[in-house]
Simulated scan of single mutants.
Amino acid sequence: MDSAIVYWLDLAGTMVFALSGVLLACRSRMDPIGMLVLAAATAVGGGTMRDLVLGVQPVFWVTDTTYLWVVLATVGASLIGYRYIHRLNRVFLPVADAFGLALFVVIGANKALLLGFSGVVAVLMGLFTGVAGGMIRDVLARRVPLVLRSEIYATAAIAGGVVYVVCEVLGVAHLGLVLSLATTLGLRLAAIRWKVSLPVFVWAMIDPDVSTRQAADADFTASVHTDQPPGKPVRRKMRVRMVHHRKARTLWAEDE
């Protein structure tokens, strides 16, 4: 890989991830310090975890403080243009985040391979680099991390990492860079465009005369009509099904 191009793209990905942390801080009504913390956690958290796991000391942003300056500049620009940054949340930021994810996966996997680790470890390091920062950000904001929900996010990162490692083993590193970026980016953008998601497990409380499949297909809830005599309690049963996340909301509210 051309190290200079990758370096500048890495800084661009750092800026995008920092901006996503700023936007979440705004939605969570945090002060400027909170914005800075979430921006830094999102931008360099994944790479920091990667370096710590791989035993790289000091971590990358200690040896190259340009990453910290990019985070500071992003937060500063957001504070100046705070009236307009919320408009980036609809179209630009999800797409830019997908580009950042694809690039971070390649960088993490490549670093692990350069240090002599196995392909499995390289795929995991690509995953860590791409998603760990967002997980830290969501935890600090008291949200369920995006990667642990039904979004096609970690799946895209794993697929891109596998493609890159396979191409490296076959000796086509430059092709692997392109194919890995295309795989991660294609899966993530397709998930955003067509709202594709993984199925989720849902607990459903249904009446004894209604099957769980009928409850899911017909959008039944706990108040399904039955022929039980008035005043007689209905013994509902708890069932578990794997359904689409939209169907899950009809069977079991997220806050229950």
Results as ranks from 00 to 15, higher is better:
Leu38Tyr: 07
Gly116Val: 05
Val123Leu: 08
Ala215Arg: 01
Ala77Glu: 01
Ala159His: 00
Gly55Ile: 10
Arg29Ile: 01
Leu19Cys: 07
Trp252Gln: 09
Met15Trp: 07
Thr66Asn: 08
Tyr164Pro: 02
Asp10Val: 10
His244Pro: 06
Asn110Leu: 10
Val243Asp: 02
Thr14Ala: 09
Arg193Ser: 09
Gly47Glu: 07
Leu9Arg: 09
Val210Lys: 07
Gly119Tyr: 04
Cys26Ala: 09
Gln214Phe: 07
Leu185Asn: 03
Leu103Thr: 09
Thr250Asp: 12
Pro199Trp: 10
Asp219Ser: 15
Val162Trp: 06
Gly81Tyr: 11
Gly45Cys: 05
Tyr153Ala: 10
Val200Tyr: 03
Arg236Gly: 02
Val172Ala: 09
Ala222Lys: 14
Thr65Asn: 03
Leu38Lys: 02
Val71Arg: 00
Leu54Phe: 04
Val91His: 09
Val240Phe: 10
Gly133Thr: 07
Ala43Lys: 03
Val105Gly: 03
Glu254Asn: 10
Trp203Ile: 14
Val169Arg: 15
Ala43Tyr: 03
Ala222Ser: 15
Leu187Met: 15
Trp8Phe: 15
Phe201Asp: 13
Ile152Val: 15
Arg246Gly: 04
Arg241Tyr: 05
Phe92His: 07
Arg235Ile: 12
Thr65Val: 09
Leu148Tyr: 05
Val53Met: 12
Val200Thr: 11
Val147Phe: 04
Leu115His: 05
Gly171Met: 13
Ile206Val: 13
Asp255Thr: 11
Pro94Cys: 04
Val106Thr: 05
Gly13Leu: 08
Val165Asn: 08
Asp51Arg: 01
Lys232Ser: 07
Ala12Leu: 15
Ser28Arg: 09
Trp194Leu: 09
Trp61Arg: 01
Ala98Tyr: 05
Val178Gln: 13
Met35Leu: 14
Val62Asn: 01
Ala253Glu: 11
Thr129His: 01
Phe17Ile: 04
Pro199Gln: 11
Thr212His: 03
Ile158Pro: 00
Val165Lys: 12
Lys111Trp: 05
Leu38Phe: 02
Arg213Val: 07
Ala41Ser: 13
Asp97Tyr: 09
Ser223Gln: 15
Asp217Glu: 14
Val123Met: 04
Gly119His: 02
Gly130Thr: 05
Arg50His: 02
Phe92Gln: 09
Ser78Met: 12
